[in-house]
Simulated assay, not measured.
Amino acid sequence: MDERVDVERESGLAGLGRTLRHLREKAGKSLGQLAQETAYDKSYLSRLEAGKRLSKMAVMEDLDRYYGSGDLLVQLWKVARHDAFKDKYKEFMRLEATARVMHVFTPGVPGLLQTEEFARGVLSGAQATAGNTEEVDEQVAARMGRQLLLRRDSASNVRFIIDEYAFRRPAATAKTWDDQLLRIEAVALWPNVVLQVLPFATGVHHLMDGSLTLLWQRDGSAVAYKEGNGGGELIDGAEEVLRHRLSYDRLRDLALPPPDSLAFIRGVLEDHRS
């Protein structure tokens, strides 16, 4: 396949939609035929081709197999998923995707560790309405796509510090929470991940009002990203980044060591099941 998208001239979603339409027309298929042969709803496929909907990556894998297009659609989907995020996060996401080292503190379960069902509950929230279902679907798909960062061949070395608060507010259903705890436990054992729990016994601390992410690139450059109260700030000044790194280091020293953190998570899981 020689199809490529000029990302400087069109959005990722538009480029993916254009390519989907081109592949279908090249195959001589109508939308109705495609729907019948792939078992996907016709109106759903139409919205994908119009660039109005972001699918799950598995849909693109299915269509790549159907069209015999290698991994073209999957690669374009990875570009398109960025459109599901607001513009102010795009630069952070670009840097996150190329980071060599990542340090994260969150008061809740980090997006990079959330299961699909847990993420859906978080992203739906109290504002969920019948009219925003598609928007939530797109945000969930984009969040799941971000998690590929942890499992690629050149995966970042990542340290998570998670406030105990995250483990004391379970998901709406028992199975969703069970699956989420198992997910965190599993990731904590990955060789490129260090995970620590910040216990309530620590008391009041300086990052209680939001999350903090530090990213280091291969060339040694670093940025900090703070998020809270509905907004985010990307910080690239060397002195400010250093200040936030020292802030993170102080929190790391207060957190449980990784083995104790893993035991804590397993204890929460056992208590939940009992």
Results as ranks from 00 to 15, higher is better:
Arg146Lys: 13
Asp219Ile: 05
Asp249Gly: 11
Lys42Ser: 12
His22Asn: 12
Leu195Cys: 06
Trp77Arg: 00
Asp71Cys: 03
Asp179Gly: 10
Ala35Glu: 10
Tyr89Ile: 12
Val104Gln: 04
Arg266Asp: 01
Phe264Asp: 02
Gly220Lys: 02
Arg169His: 14
Asp249Met: 10
Leu214Asn: 01
Trp216Thr: 04
Ala27His: 08
Asp178Gln: 11
Thr115Phe: 00
Pro107Cys: 06
Ile235Glu: 04
Leu45Trp: 07
Ser11Ala: 07
Ala50Ile: 07
Leu148Gly: 12
Tyr248Thr: 01
Ile161Phe: 00
Arg159Leu: 10
Ala119Arg: 00
Ala186Arg: 15
Arg21His: 06
Glu37Thr: 13
Asp64Ile: 08
Gln147Phe: 06
Thr106Gly: 01
Phe85Lys: 12
Gly108Lys: 09
Glu270Trp: 07
Gln217His: 09
Glu25Ser: 11
Arg151Glu: 12
Met144Gln: 10
Glu61Met: 10
Ile184Asp: 02
Asp71Gly: 02
Asp236Gln: 13
Arg152Thr: 08
Val204Met: 13
Asp178Pro: 06
Leu13Trp: 01
Ser211Cys: 05
Leu234Phe: 03
His22Met: 14
Pro258Phe: 02
Arg243Gly: 08
Lys52Gly: 13
Asn157Glu: 15
Gly267Thr: 11
Arg21Phe: 01
Arg21Ala: 04
Glu117Arg: 08
Phe85Arg: 11
Arg120Ile: 01
Gly231Lys: 15
Trp177Leu: 04
Glu91Ala: 12
Glu117Thr: 12
Arg169Leu: 10
Val197Cys: 06
Gln196Gly: 08
Glu91Asn: 12
Arg159Pro: 00
Asn157Ser: 14
Arg273Gly: 09
Gly28Trp: 07
Leu214Pro: 00
Tyr248Phe: 11
Glu135Thr: 08
Asp6Gln: 09
Ile265Ala: 09
Tyr225His: 12
Ala155Trp: 05
Ser221His: 13
Glu185Gln: 13
Asp87Thr: 13
Tyr67Trp: 15
Ser11Val: 05
Leu215Asp: 00
Leu20Cys: 03
Ala119Ser: 10
Thr213Glu: 04
Arg168Lys: 11
Asp71Met: 11
Val79Phe: 02
Lys26Ser: 13
Arg18Tyr: 03
Lys88Ile: 14
Phe85Tyr: 15
Thr19Asp: 00
Val241Ala: 11
Gly230Leu: 05
Ser156Lys: 02
Ala39Met: 15
Val187Lys: 06
Asp271Phe: 06
